[in-house]
């Protein structure tokens, strides 16, 4: 094969193409969130009282979201375990850890969704000034990322069921893990900024 020939004559790079590409992608994702977080900070710092006076009475669900944060952090740990499992060539453990991670991710999305429903009922909508607007856009953007990570994870799970991974062939698990850890690690920053500040 052509590519085979190409690799033979070259030194093996320290990072595989797939791993390098996913790290590069995370650079772009970081900048996307930087834009949104920057916007949030402009509004947060620009307003003397936050939430603005018109929003008194609406409280963001700090406690429930705190618990939710813990769930997501745990999912980061379970994803890491899945990654460790395939390195030890244990497809069965990989499957179990992936399943737990996926369920935790779905749980996170479910809890957040129900919180949103309650907030909208209380009157915090996209239209309620920049306070509501940036809340839904920033948190929503993260939720979209969690959702896509969950979808990706279930595809990887499907591939694991089909026996596509082994200790020396696990690029799919590897890239998905890196992406998942990114999405998990981003959340505490958003939680502290949006909910606690």
């Amino acid at each position: 094969m052509e590519t085979q020939n190409n690799i033979d004559v070259r030194e093996r790079p320290p990072l595989s193409n797939a791993r390098l590409a996913i790290l590069v992608l995370l650079g772009a994702e970081t900048m996307l969130f930087s834009g949104l977080i920057g916007t949030f900070l402009v509004f947060r710092v620009g307003n003397v009282t936050w939430p603005p006076p018109s929003h008194i009475g609406i409280e963001l669900p700090r406690v429930v979201t705190g618990i939710n944060t813990a769930l997501l952090l745990i999912s980061g740990y379970t994803m890491f375990q899945a990654w460790r499992a395939i390195q030890k060539d244990s497809v069965k453990q990989l499957r179990n850890w992936l399943l737990i991670t996926g369920i935790l991710g779905l749980l996170f999305l479910g809890i957040q969704g129900s919180e949103w429903v309650q907030l909208i009922r209380k009157g915090l909508t996209l239209q309620s000034g920049v306070y509501g607007g940036i809340f839904y856009v920033l948190i929503g953007c993260h939720a979209v990322h969690v959702l896509s990570a969950v979808i990706w994870l279930f595809i990887v799970l499907g591939m694991a069921m089909a026996g596509r991974f082994s200790a020396d062939r696990y690029t799919g698990v590897d890239t998905c893990t890196i992406y998942w850890i990114f999405v998990v690690a981003l959340w505490p920053i958003l939680y502290v900024l949006v909910y606690l500040s």
């Binding site: 996307l32 834009g35 996209l126 000034g129 920049v130 607007g133």
Partner: peptide
């Protein structure tokens, strides 16, 4: 991506009635 984030906000202003 920074432009993309700005565009997202702009489109929300246009379509969803936000006032970013």
């Amino acid at each position: 991506p920074v432009l993309s984030s700005a565009i997202v906000l702009l489109v929300f202003d246009r379509l969803a009635g936000t006032t970013f």
